[in-house]
Simulated scan of single mutants.
Amino acid sequence: MVSPSPAALVDRYLQLCEDRELAAASAFLAPGARLNFPGGRTHPSLAAMAAAASGAYQWVRKRRDRYFEAAGDGADQVVISLGTLYGEDLAGEPFSGVRYADVFVLRDGLIVEQNVFNDLPEAGIVPVPTPQIAGSNEVPNP
């Protein structure tokens, strides 16, 4: 059996996440995978990611426009997914055309890191995250 390309693997994972088939999507993650989201939030699991998103919007999906594949450190592979987000905010208002970029690091065919970047705060869909100083509860002065 031929293994899917790194981009095809990421695309399937993203589709499963959107469909909230989190158990199936989790099979694409390496043990200890890091799920890094805007505002410096790192989730230890897809269930934690979904729980955190529940207070941000009603639902969101991705129009996945392009993928880029590159070599990473050692045998790692990097996949970048670019596109736009659409969905409904907490008030039930539709939104679309919000840019996103997801950067994945794959090792041995599994996702070890997902880095999510998007313009949801700039579009007014979610609050602008308050920057935190690593290892502290202090908020830096603006």
Rank of each mutant, 00 (worst) to 15 (best):
G97E: 05
S3G: 09
A91Y: 01
W59H: 14
D65Q: 13
R34I: 12
N118V: 06
E21N: 12
V98P: 01
G124Q: 04
E122R: 11
S136N: 09
Y100D: 01
I80R: 02
A70D: 09
L120E: 03
A30G: 09
F117E: 09
R34M: 12
Q15R: 14
F104T: 06
L106Q: 03
S96I: 00
T130L: 13
S3V: 10
A101I: 08
N115V: 13
Q132I: 10
E93W: 07
R63Y: 09
A25E: 01
P131L: 10
V10S: 05
L22A: 03
Q77H: 08
P142W: 12
E93I: 06
A134P: 07
A30P: 01
A27F: 01
E138T: 14
A50P: 02
D108I: 01
S96A: 15
A50S: 14
R66Q: 15
L35P: 00
S3R: 15
A51S: 10
N36G: 04
A71I: 01
P140S: 07
A30E: 11
R20V: 11
N137V: 09
Q77M: 09
D73R: 13
P44W: 07
E113S: 14
A123S: 12
Y86V: 05
A53K: 11
L85R: 01
A23N: 11
D73V: 14
A50L: 11
P6S: 02
E138C: 06
D119P: 00
P4K: 02
E122I: 07
P129I: 08
G135C: 07
S5M: 06
A51C: 02
A24T: 12
A47R: 15
L35I: 15
F37M: 09
A7T: 13
S136G: 05
P140M: 06
A24K: 12
P142V: 13
R64F: 03
W59R: 14
L35E: 04
M49S: 11
W59N: 13
A27V: 09
A50D: 15
G40W: 05
S5Q: 11
C17R: 14
L22R: 07
Y67L: 02
P140C: 04
Y57H: 15
A101R: 07
I125K: 06
I111L: 08
